[in-house]
Amino acid sequence: MGFKLLSKLLVYLTASIMAIASPLAFSVDSSGEYPTVSEIPVGEVRLYQIADGVWSHIATQSFDGAVYPSNGLIVRDGDELLLIDTAWGAKNTAALLAEIEKQIGLPVTRAVSTHFHDDRVGGVDVLRAAGVATYASPSTRRLAEVEGNEIPTHSLEGLSSSGDAVRFGPVELFYPGAAHSTDNLIVYVPSASVLYGGCAIYELSRTSAGNVADADLAEWPTSIERIQQHYPEAQFVIPGHGLPGGLDLLKHTTNVVKAHTNRSVVE
């Protein structure tokens, strides 16, 4: 069995187990497998329904001669939608809004960016022009300005110390501490036991640490421990890039980060 097929099978099995364990909360999309990078042309966006009122959005972007996937989250909030992270750029984010209108038909009224990198804030200006209120932590807003990236308009308070959590509509926002970046936030959907790890969490097929220019490698494993301790009931975990899975993604990420750190020390 090929690795790609095995990865998709694991996603399907995880979703099936969740649907059985929580039949009222989960209505997993039966329309197909989780979209992969090879299936999404740059400039297009796919939506994948995880649970009743919960979707991931998947886009792709060219970077350094390669094409990478990027995940975000959409959560229903009454007759409105909360968006977590842009679709990595203005063109993708405009396509995301169009796809949401086509498939869901509810307005996106608020959006949260989970850290300051372009795959999370690139497209904020498109959201703002569409009347979406954009939010991020003060740290993310400051770092985005320093980096020359787009800056969300509103500040999220109460997320300055490791372990801080605040309720934001249908989700809980959690600051686990520094990891992929010093400002990275985690998003949890309690009604569906869905954990969105953003770039602080890796997919299972990833074996290298990737972009760690703004990471705190020493603190990252401790931050992941905080996530595990705060959300032990999480059933569906979405990484910032690639295929979702279960809580095993947290341990896998820790292993990859520690291996990278150990290699760096040896070198």
Rank of each mutant, 00 (worst) to 15 (best):
S137Q: 10
D216I: 15
M1W: 02
I20A: 05
H252K: 05
A136Q: 02
V171K: 01
S155P: 12
P69N: 05
A200V: 08
S155I: 00
V132S: 03
R263L: 04
T153A: 08
A218S: 10
W220G: 11
W88K: 00
G158N: 08
F168T: 06
R110H: 14
E203C: 02
A19I: 14
D29I: 14
E147S: 02
D248S: 13
N255P: 15
A259V: 05
A111D: 11
K8W: 12
G245N: 05
H260L: 03
H252M: 13
A209V: 11
L249N: 15
C199N: 02
G89E: 12
R128I: 04
G246K: 03
S181R: 02
L9I: 14
L83W: 00
R76N: 04
E150R: 15
P190T: 10
H117D: 00
V37G: 06
Y188H: 08
G245A: 08
Y68E: 07
M18C: 03
G78R: 06
A111F: 02
D119G: 01
V108G: 06
N184I: 12
L173R: 03
P221E: 13
S27N: 11
D216T: 05
Q49F: 13
V171A: 04
V67S: 04
I104L: 07
G198M: 00
R76K: 11
I104E: 01
H117V: 00
S62I: 01
G197R: 01
T182L: 05
R206Q: 08
D85V: 00
V146G: 10
L127I: 13
A90Q: 14
V126E: 15
V187T: 12
S70P: 02
S56P: 04
G2A: 02
A98Y: 00
E172D: 10
L204E: 12
E225A: 05
A19E: 05
V187C: 15
P41C: 13
R263Q: 09
L82H: 15
T253S: 13
I224W: 07
N71F: 15
T140N: 15
A51Q: 14
L250Q: 04
P23A: 08
K91W: 12
L195Y: 14
V257P: 14
S7R: 06
D85L: 00
H230E: 04
V256N: 06
S181A: 09
V166K: 06
S30Y: 08
T140Q: 01
V11T: 11
N71C: 10
I100A: 14
H180Y: 00
V42W: 08
H115V: 00
G197P: 05
D79Y: 10
S113R: 00
L96C: 12
G242A: 11
E219V: 08
S7D: 13
G65K: 13
V237S: 10
V187E: 01
T36I: 05
R167F: 07
T254Q: 05
H260I: 03
R226I: 12
N255W: 08
L96S: 06
K91P: 11
L82Y: 04
I151C: 14
T109H: 15
V126T: 15
Y188N: 12
A259W: 06
P152Y: 15
I227Y: 01
G197Q: 02
P107D: 14
L97N: 01
T182Y: 02
S223A: 08
R226Q: 04
G2S: 05
L250M: 10
S7Y: 05
L127F: 01
A213L: 11
I58C: 05
G53V: 08
G177P: 01
Y135H: 01
L195S: 06
K258S: 07
E101P: 03
D125I: 13
W220C: 07
P152W: 13
Y175E: 12
V132R: 02
E99M: 02
R128T: 05
A95V: 10
R206D: 12
S191R: 09
L97Q: 00
A234N: 12
I40V: 07
C199M: 01
H57I: 15
V28G: 09
A87P: 06
T153V: 04
N255L: 05
D77T: 04
L24M: 05
A259F: 04
E99Y: 15
L156D: 07
D52M: 11
S193C: 10
R142C: 02
S155V: 14
R128D: 03
A19F: 11
Q61A: 09
D125V: 04
N71D: 07
A133D: 14
S162R: 07
A19H: 15
A133E: 13
H180V: 00
A144L: 03
I74R: 01
L156N: 02
N71K: 02
R167W: 02
V108I: 14
V75Q: 12
H260F: 15
V28M: 08
G245Q: 07
K8A: 04
I100F: 01
K91T: 14
P41H: 06
I104H: 00
K258A: 08
Q235Y: 11
A111H: 12
L127V: 14
A19Q: 11
D29Q: 07
A144R: 10
K251W: 03
E39C: 08
T60R: 06
A165C: 10
I58F: 03
I224V: 04
L73D: 03
D216M: 04
D29Y: 05
H115D: 00
T153P: 12
E203S: 01
I17K: 11
P35T: 05
A144E: 15
S137G: 10
R120F: 08
I40A: 11
G163A: 07
K91I: 12
Q49M: 03
T36A: 05
V171G: 09
S16K: 04
I238M: 15
L249E: 14
A200G: 11
N211F: 14
S113M: 01
G2H: 15
R128E: 02
I238Y: 05
I58L: 03
T134V: 10
I186Q: 00
T14G: 09
S193F: 05
G131W: 11
R110K: 05
A94G: 13
S62W: 05
S223H: 09
P23G: 08
R141I: 13
G198Q: 05
F116G: 07
A136H: 05
L24Q: 15
